[in-house]
Simulated assay, not measured.
Amino acid sequence: MPVALGKWLVKADQMAEAWTMTFDSADPPALAAFWKTALGYVDAAPPSGFADWEAFLRHFGVAEDEWGDAAYLEDPAGRGPRISFLRVPEPKVAKNRIHLDIQAGGGRGVPWEVRAPRVRAAVQRLVAAGATVLREDVVDGRLDHVVMADPEGNEFCVV
């Protein structure tokens, strides 16, 4: 049966799969707090049928000392994917093979004179939240984007 998706009609079996981005982390609650600031996300609501995450964890017998082993965020507008943060024992040791581009400047279609100050302001905000500037990439003498790392070293760009 066709489903209306914007101005297109698609068959239900042609729709994209729902997905979640997951970060391995040494400290999931702390890393989730950084990404809430970076993306404007909020703590994810508990699963349906549970008043809060504590009730969910108690229901499934999760030991209290493991409650900080995960954190979950969601886009308050429901547009972006949910993000999970899961505790892992090993530290990050290599460059990411995938990363996020935070389009604080509005994207490369926005004039440089407008985009560059927005990018610089976002970089300052993210440094204050715990990120590190790795490098500024300049094209034709103008700032194109800034490569940064979150508090656990995961690379991302501000464009």
Rank of each mutant, 00 (worst) to 15 (best):
R142Y: 10
R115K: 07
A116S: 15
V133D: 06
R135S: 14
V88T: 14
A121N: 02
P47K: 07
G105T: 06
G6T: 13
T20Y: 07
R79M: 13
V138K: 03
V158H: 00
W53L: 03
D24Q: 13
A45W: 05
T37D: 09
V138R: 09
R97V: 12
L9A: 14
D137R: 15
D137M: 10
L73H: 01
T20C: 11
S25Q: 05
V110Q: 08
M15E: 08
A26Q: 15
V10M: 13
R120T: 11
F60S: 10
L134Q: 10
G80K: 06
S25K: 00
K7V: 14
E66A: 14
H59A: 08
A94Y: 15
A104V: 06
M148A: 03
G107E: 07
T20V: 14
A45C: 05
F56M: 09
D24H: 13
F85L: 06
E155D: 07
V114Q: 13
W67C: 06
L31R: 00
R125W: 08
R82Q: 13
A51G: 15
D150S: 02
L143Y: 01
A94D: 12
G40C: 04
L126D: 01
A149G: 12
V146W: 00
P47N: 06
R142H: 12
P117L: 08
P2I: 13
R79P: 15
A104N: 05
A131G: 06
E113D: 08
T20F: 12
M1S: 10
G105A: 05
D27N: 15
V3L: 12
Q14D: 13
V123P: 02
D69H: 10
A77C: 08
S48Y: 06
P151E: 11
V127D: 05
D150K: 00
T132L: 07
K11S: 15
K11T: 15
C157K: 00
A121K: 11
E136M: 05
R125H: 07
A26F: 02
G153L: 04
G68T: 12
A149S: 04
G105K: 05
G153Q: 02
A131E: 05
D24A: 14
D43Y: 01
A122C: 11
L100K: 05
G109I: 11
A30F: 03
K92I: 12
R97G: 07
D13K: 07
W35Y: 09
V159E: 03
F156K: 01
A149L: 06
S25A: 10
